[in-house]
Design a protein around this nucleic acid. Structure first.
Lengths: 211, 211, 211, 211
DNA sequence: CCATAAACGAGACGGTACGTCTTGTCTTTCT
DNA sequence: AGAAAGACAAGACGTACCGTCTCGTTTATGG
């Protein structure tokens, strides 16, 4: 592997301008919503943020990473704003009801362009750039999926899910179909749809013997 | 609606050079595999195909559409070469076995870069360009999914799937998780994995009453 | 000497756009006069000429060379416009009178900003870039100086200049002082001044023996 | 005239760091010799001198002025080092010999890159920036030319130069040609060349009547 | 002899221009 | 008329410097 001539001379994060960082986040998110990801350029972000291009290049290696951080920040702020403690999952004892509730909320969120546009853009970039794709999963997807894992484990303890079932796989039965319909336009998404997914996943599609 | 000055003077498809078309397909597919989709440019395709840029712009509106056609052509040729009749699905009477077999074959296909690279590229473009995304689904995805629908309907007739189940949704229980792991690197894919998906989907993850 | 990776792929001069060339010349000359050479940028020339930057970079290696060609073209056009045959020198038989006349004309020309600004800019660039400096001399200066050489030789034939004098050096006695005052602001320039130079140069500054 | 908000809060020259000043001079001169004037940047000077950029901007308005001071300082030091009293001119009574001697020394000096590079750079900048050009003349050129004036006046007193000759113009007959050949590459410079200039200038190029 | 205010090194910042690359259009020439 | 070739206007890329603006850290009196 040929070494770089001059390894990037690591800027001093202590002196970083918080003002600029915020302006860049805002500009990036706004542009992705307004003109779409491919027409969102680093020049455009810099201009809209009232910032020199170098200030972007100093802190991020690509527009995808700018957007990633901006979106993570947005998610954090949104959660905090909503007064909710983030990353929790209802556990009423009724697994089906809890899953349906969470998936219905997810469906609603996926309709909001402020969430849809950046999220979709990052997913798209991730498909074609493995490094970024893995970051996307690790930072955005996996933390949420982990909540399903925990809820499913709790359901296993309560005897509502078979103990031999792998929760990490089980969750994909309802999460992945929704994800695919959302991302790839393979079908409409609705509360009914996710309710159905939960039903099918819990009880299977094969005929059930009479209890 | 302001009319175009010159309505696109529709080229005469009859005089189209078959030689150029083939060269463009080959160049596009090769480049996507070799340098990746983002670094595949129309200029690059033209140069590699020994073709004028205008010849590409005359017949396709974007590099994504070039790649789409090239990939469809590849798929057709591959099927023909393999001597198989395309678009069939095994029906041995054992639904679980048939699904597992098809999904195992799919897993193998997804590992082949000649398939993976263009397919992933088109998916990525589709995420961010709805028009293209819908084309992708209609031309590439839906035809395959339709085979699952038919097989599931046949299983319903045989009493192996509950009659109230919607086959178009049911198929997503095993197809979408595989698709997501493949596209988004959310987990490893293997024959074991798809076998498990089929099991979970057919019989559910909830405890089954004794038969 | 390390060879270039790809030697510049020589554009096809036959297809060159005359319209763009003219627009670039005009823009370059206008900008140098209006905002000065250092603030004349390639981007500015391109914008003013309504031309892509690449069209400039395709045909010229630097803004200095653009300006050089533009100025040569201007000189040619000016001469043609004035209906004069360019590159001639009066020869009335009276050397002193002829030299004074030409130098007076030169003084006038040096006051015209359309001539002064680009000419001075090229000279400045040439001081610091030997390659360009030599071009400046070869294309702009030397052809004019050659006319002095010829006139002086004719004067030698007529016995008005000593035969052992080197005309190429002799001409510098009046041309260089004017050039230096013009370029370096070492003194004012006027018709009187150049007349004096001719007098001093022809007859020396030492006392002359009575004839 | 709109007044400045804050009149430049004149730095206190008393506290100025001599160490930095020296380092800046050295860096500026070295860089001009090593990489040429256009590639000598203020950032580069600061880095090489181990100095903050602001320390340069605090004391000089432009890189040209830095170089000017650096060069004046160099000239002073050189003179002092050579143990010579600066700004003197030989007066042996033989004008021709004295002029030839001084010009030969000048020719030698012009060949030394430590003198040539900065001097040429300042001249170039001066061509295009009148203010700086006039400074260049006043601080660097005129003091030397004044010595010629004095020597010529002394020669006039001795009857070796006609009393009606203007020494300030006369000196240009030999100084300007040398300057032009040096700066603009209009011809080679050598001791022979300057000797010839002196001859021509003193006795003219026209035929001399028999004494 | 210590307090304090300046100059200092460092370097992030908003900008401008660089020279390169690719896009999609247009034009020329050949077949 | 289609195709190869490639010049063109447009504009984003990522880099290099500009000149300004903080940041702590010397440093050098002057109270």
């Amino acid at each position: 592997m040929p070494a770089r001539e001059t390894p990037p001379p690591a800027p001093n994060a202590g002196r970083r301008s918080e003002r600029s960082r915020r302006a860049i986040y805002d500009a990036a998110l706004a542009l992705v919503v307004e003109v779409g990801y491919p027409r969102t350029t680093i020049e455009g972000i810099a201009a809209r943020a009232g910032v020199g291009k170098q200030t972007i290049y100093r802190w991020w290696p690509s527009k995808a990473e700018v957007l990633m951080e901006a979106f993570l920040d947005l998610a954090e702020r949104s959660a905090r704003e909503a007064g909710e403690q983030p990353y929790t999952f209802p556990d009423t004892g009724d697994l089906a009801a809890d899953l349906k509730a969470v998936l219905r909320a997810t469906v609603d969120e996926l309709q909001d362009p402020r969430f849809d546009a950046p999220s979709r853009a990052l997913a798209a970039e991730g498909l074609v750039n493995e490094e970024l794709g893995r970051q996307y999963v690790a930072k955005l997807l996996e933390p949420s999926l982990q909540l399903y894992v925990e809820r499913l484990r709790s359901a296993q303890d309560a005897g509502q899910v078979r103990p031999d079932v792998d929760p990490r796989i089980a969750l994909e039965l309802f999460v992945s179909p929704l994800a695919q319909r959302w991302l790839q336009y393979t079908g409409p998404i609705s509360h009914d749809y996710t309710d159905t997914l939960v039903e099918y996943a819990l009880y299977g599609i094969a005929p059930r013997p009479k209890a």
